[in-house]
Amino acid sequence: MRAGLWNRIRDNVWPRMGMRRYGSYLRKRVMRLSASPHAIAAGVASGAAVSMFPLIGLHFLLGFVLAFATRGNMIAAAIGTVWGNPLTFPFFFAASYAVGDWLTGGGGGISASEGQQLEATGAHLSHGLFSEGFGAVWPTFKTMMIGGLPMAILVFGVFYIVVRTVVTRFRAIRQARFKRKHPELRQPAQSSTN
Results as ranks from 00 to 15, higher is better:
138 W>P: 12
68 F>C: 00
140 T>G: 15
150 P>C: 05
32 R>F: 14
128 G>P: 06
48 A>T: 04
131 S>Q: 14
141 F>R: 03
80 G>A: 00
38 H>D: 12
27 R>V: 06
59 H>N: 01
105 G>K: 03
83 W>K: 02
148 G>A: 12
121 T>H: 13
74 M>G: 03
74 M>L: 10
144 M>E: 08
130 F>T: 14
77 A>N: 01
78 A>H: 07
139 P>C: 09
58 L>R: 07
120 A>N: 06
26 L>K: 04
95 A>G: 06
18 G>Y: 15
13 V>P: 07
12 N>P: 03
29 R>F: 09
23 G>D: 09
134 F>C: 13
87 L>D: 12
148 G>V: 00
79 I>A: 05
11 D>A: 14
75 I>V: 13
116 Q>H: 10
136 A>N: 08
107 G>D: 06
29 R>M: 10
25 Y>E: 10
102 W>I: 01
33 L>I: 05
85 N>L: 01
150 P>S: 10
118 L>R: 11
94 A>K: 11
49 A>F: 07
12 N>W: 15
39 A>S: 13
133 G>R: 02
20 R>G: 14
60 F>L: 07
150 P>F: 13
126 S>F: 11
37 P>M: 05
133 G>Q: 06
32 R>M: 13
128 G>E: 11
73 N>G: 04
120 A>V: 00
133 G>C: 07
92 F>I: 04
75 I>S: 14
135 G>I: 05
12 N>V: 00
128 G>C: 04
66 L>P: 03
121 T>D: 15
24 S>W: 12
96 S>N: 05
75 I>G: 12
34 S>C: 03
139 P>I: 03
116 Q>V: 01
89 F>M: 11
64 F>D: 04
13 V>R: 08
115 G>I: 00
56 I>R: 12
97 Y>E: 02
55 L>P: 08
82 V>C: 07
112 A>F: 04
65 V>S: 09
98 A>R: 05
69 A>G: 02
114 E>I: 04
113 S>D: 10
145 M>G: 03
16 R>P: 00
152 A>Q: 12
100 G>D: 02
133 G>W: 08
152 A>L: 06
122 G>V: 02
147 G>A: 01
